[in-house]
Design a binder for these strands. Structure first.
Length: 308
DNA sequence: AAAAGTGTCAACCGCTATTCC
DNA sequence: GGGAATAGCGGTTGACACTTT
């Protein structure tokens, strides 16, 4: 198929580009859009899937009136529009799980993503390529090398575990404190409800977001990258920092679903996560915290540079 | 303030596997 | 059984935002 690309000036939708498919049959010529999705396209796709469900994506694209390939529609739906998709920084738990699963399975992104609720293979892949490979580069080695593996096992992962533990300890303390405060106000005055109602309103408005996420993107945000970037907290690991209930804009249940380290029990990673912790507890040689003497990365490297 | 460099991530590409006819 | 269509996967690219000089 010969394809001639041109910028979308002639297109009804802004930006992006269109492709003209040159076919022997002129009647078959059609315009297909590519590039960033618009709000209108998102609405069309989401609305159609909501009404009719997922199906054959090429047919769906046509039926929905989208000038996109089925492949493009599928990708947009899976990576962005599908309910439950999460965006934003990876929590320390997620980072740890990615490191662990990648060490077992390699670049099996979809398989790894399947263990990270709400995360897509694309996001996991991007995380690996941008963050993890960057550290490997700093070490002057390849991500597949023994050196990198050792650094990951002896430095990175133990510190992620430390961080997670610290977060959970803080969360437990905060939850206890909140409980006590609640009891105090409950006893002292019926107006304690104000405490809970003072939570930011956008928590419910963005049910798919993680706890650190800002309000829903406004209509001018098209691809999602803009708002996710804007919403990204400046401090590392902030996405897990809804450990204090006061700082979390979502309910406890949402927090759990979103992987936040709230004080209460259910863990989003279930089996994989417990396996990991079990290994951490029983395999000191791999996860030992005392093996940081060979300092390829300084502590500053580990914690000052973003691991997310 | 502007240019250059860097990081991030959505979207696309090409390939393989699976399903359908 | 075989070919076409579709789904799914991993790799790559390009645009944009941010940082550094």
């Amino acid at each position: 198929m010969d394809a001639l690309w041109k910028q979308g000036s002639s297109c009804d939708w802004p930006a992006a580009a269109t492709v003209i498919i040159n076919d022997d049959d002129a009647a078959a010529e059609e315009l297909l859009r590519r590039g960033p999705w618009t709000v209108d396209e998102d609405a069309l796709l989401a609305g159609y899937v909501a009404a009719h469900g997922e199906g054959r994506w090429n047919d769906l694209a046509r039926a929905a009136g989208l000038r996109r390939t089925g492949k493009s529609c599928r990708l947009r739906w899976l990576n962005y529009l599908r309910p439950g998709v999460r965006h934003g920084d990876f929590t320390p738990r997620e980072q740890l799980l990615i490191l662990d699963l990648h060490s077992r399975w390699g670049n099996r992104w979809s398989k790894i993503a399947a263990h990270l609720p709400g995360r897509t293979d694309n996001e996991v892949k991007n995380y690996w390529r941008t963050r993890v490979q960057k550290h490997a580069k700093q070490l002057g080695c390849d991500v597949g090398s023994h050196r990198f593996h050792d650094a990951m096992m002896n430095l990175w992962m133990p510190r992620l575990l430390e961080r997670i533990h610290a977060d959970e300890t803080a969360a437990a303390a905060a939850a206890t404190a909140a409980h006590n405060v609640s009891r105090y106000y409950s006893a002292a005055s019926p107006s304690h409800e104000l405490l809970s109602s003072s939570q930011p309103a956008y928590g419910n408005a963005a049910p798919m977001g993680n706890c650190a996420r800002a309000p829903s993107p406004d209509a001018s945000s098209v691809t999602g990258s803009s708002w996710s970037r804007e919403a990204s907290p400046p401090s590392q690991f902030q996405s897990s920092s809804c450990s204090t209930m006061a700082g979390c804009s979502t309910s406890t249940e949402q927090c759990q679903n979103n992987g936040c380290s709230s004080a209460t029990s259910v863990d989003m990673f279930d089996e994989s996560w417990s396996e990991l912790l079990a290994r951490a507890n029983h395999d000191d040689t791999e996860f030992g915290l005392g093996q940081t003497g060979d300092n390829w990365w300084s502590l500053e490297d580990i914690w000052e540079q973003p691991l997310y």
